[in-house]
Design a protein around this nucleic acid. Structure first.
Lengths: 210, 210, 210, 210
DNA sequence: CATGAATGAGCTTTCATTCAT
DNA sequence: AATGAATGAAAGCTCATTCAT
């Protein structure tokens, strides 16, 4: 969930200098994100993007080939490495299943915090991705679900969890983690984010634990 | 979740005959829904809508004033009466809190079943609604959340439920009910809908019940 | 070579009134022809065409679907019925082969006269036609060549002509007929058109007749 | 018709070293020719030319000033020295007029053979030449016509030819020589080139000779 | 009430060309 | 001499919306 370091291998470029490409791609992705959040992908014009990035329209097209490439850049920027979030937070090293999954959820929630709008954006606009990118985004999510499934199964085997269908539960948990970005309008003016984290964490755990 | 009978108070019209207006509004909403599901609101042109409704472009603008009015009509058609779903299914008459909420969830899930795509659509395109309609749609949801909150509080008082924060829980439940429309791509080819209903129902109940 | 009466069956339209379509198509074709002669097909923009026809750009696209359709309209306007020119001039009724072919050539040359630039245009820009139209244009020419071939064979059988290869000769004659439009720059300021007709006619006949 | 040795006096350059200029000009012309044949002058972009020549876009503009200069280079490359073809083939030394003109035609046809596409190209795209180059190209052709005119007049004086108007005939002959490049689509899949040479040669001669 | 032609602004994309290094 | 990033204008085309009939 942390912002990706190496964006934009996906997007072809006419510019040769890779450092410059990276820099501009980051700029484009960052600025476009804000526009997309405000007006949506279809509602944002290339001229808008040109204006806010202060990159000439013609030059903009030196760094991308099509408008949807901008969307890919945005996804590249934010959609990297859900699983890495777990790795980085040392989740796999935790032995106790309850503690493990609790910490996993918390890690996810905390690393989502600064990117609520971005996550919603990705949720709303993923359908405009070119098929290849869409697939990779979905694969990314599937991986995350799979990690949770494994954690749940382990908890069940250990007798710590009581779960009817681990695959379904894993899907539900991943979905529940996104409750704040997706339903924020009803929650975020009522709770501080930390509270939301705690509440969500507890709520999910309540379901699993015997 | 049943289709609303009286759509289109929201949308102003040049036509006087109210029966005709209602008839055409229903037609427009129904046909536009399919287009929006397939191509999104921004991806659908007024010409597309004119073509599928077989209403001339000019005439179409006798029944609406702007393109976003069509979206309002669609929302009017599907977004009415969440609470009525509960009423109609006799939820309020059920005394046992666990049974009550279980049946409420089931009623919601079942009445959502034929409208998965429409629900997703409303989720995706609500941001293009004019503010007034958006507010009313949100209000509608808030009402539903509120009903669940009341059921939860009653269960807690009766000692049937163990819930930290009823308002949060109600929000989460309403959110969880929409797991199938919103995350269908990973679930719907694995489970039949009845199974999903059962799994979701059980999963949510597991959390609440002591 | 006479201008076609019924242009534009080829080109699809959003406009329903067929008379209007015909009228505008004629207008578009006529005005575009002049532009294409001056600046070529690629060098002429849709905006140019919009300007000279005084049809709004958006509306222009109600009468065509793509820019190349305009080229089709131009070809429809001028490229009809080479063979009809022969029919209309009563060529097939002439018994004497020499007289027949002489009159055929003259008829072609005379009916070409008002359209020198247009013929050159069609020669230069035919490569931008969509394949279907290109084929039909080529077929049209092939028919003309074929008619000449038949006339030549008849003359050979009658002992009036001395020709090595009638098919080749027919091709060469059709080519020679276009000498004025295609090489006009060197000839047209030296001879009046009538003289060119006479010279070409005699020159070709000289080759054939025993 | 042989490729010119000294191209590019026409085109101004920022580069000083004349050998280098010549080398690059030849490269540009040769590669651009292929592109122009395939996609036309207007359909070819400077980037295309940069790509195939492997000369950087910026550097390309060190050797030319405008895109049309590239066209000039192409014309320089192929359009030189029609008259030289006659010289090199020893045409002027031939005494017998019929033999002379027959050999002249054959020489032209044979030296055209490898450049059919190039000749058509020059025919199609000459209108994009800057006026000066266009004039020089036309002058070149005029010279060729003039040579033929002289040969014809000589034949007439000697009593070998019977020609109404030598200037017109010369024009027509030069035009006929280009029948294969310009009308190839109907002839070239029916005859081998040698046959076309023989047929054209005989056909033209038939007209002239008493 | 209905028709469908017309409008004009806006879209994405590409191009010839220049300029700093 | 050479590189390649940058520019700004213009291209083809579509759209929501209006208006005369």
């Amino acid at each position: 969930m942390a912002v990706a370091e190496n964006s934009s291998q996906t997007v072809e470029t006419r510019i040769k200098n890779p450092k410059l490409v990276r820099k501009k791609h980051l700029l484009i992705a960052a600025k476009a994100t804000k526009l997309f959040i405000k007006k949506g992908f279809s509602g944002t014009s290339m001229r808008d993007i040109s204006r806010v990035t202060k990159i000439t329209l013609g030059n903009l097209y030196s760094y991308i080939k099509k408008k949807e490439d901008v969307l890919c850049l945005v996804f590249d920027l934010y959609h990297k490495s859900w699983v890495k979030v777990l790795e980085k937070n040392g989740i796999y090293a935790i032995d106790d299943p309850e503690e493990q999954i609790r910490r996993a959820i918390r890690a996810m929630l905390q690393s989502c915090e600064p990117y609520q709008d971005e996550i919603k954006l990705m949720y709303l606009e993923s359908r405009f991705l070119p098929e290849k990118s869409l697939k990779s985004a979905m694969e990314n999510e599937r991986e995350l679900v799979h990690e949770f499934e494994k954690m749940i199964r382990r908890g069940v085997e250990r007798g710590a969890f009581r779960v009817e269908d681990p695959f379904f539960a894993a899907n539900m948990i991943v979905f529940q983690i996104s409750v704040s970005p997706l339903r924020g309008w009803n929650l975020r003016d009522r709770y501080r984010y930390e509270e939301l984290v705690r509440l969500t964490e507890n709520y999910i755990l309540e379901t699993l634990v015997k």
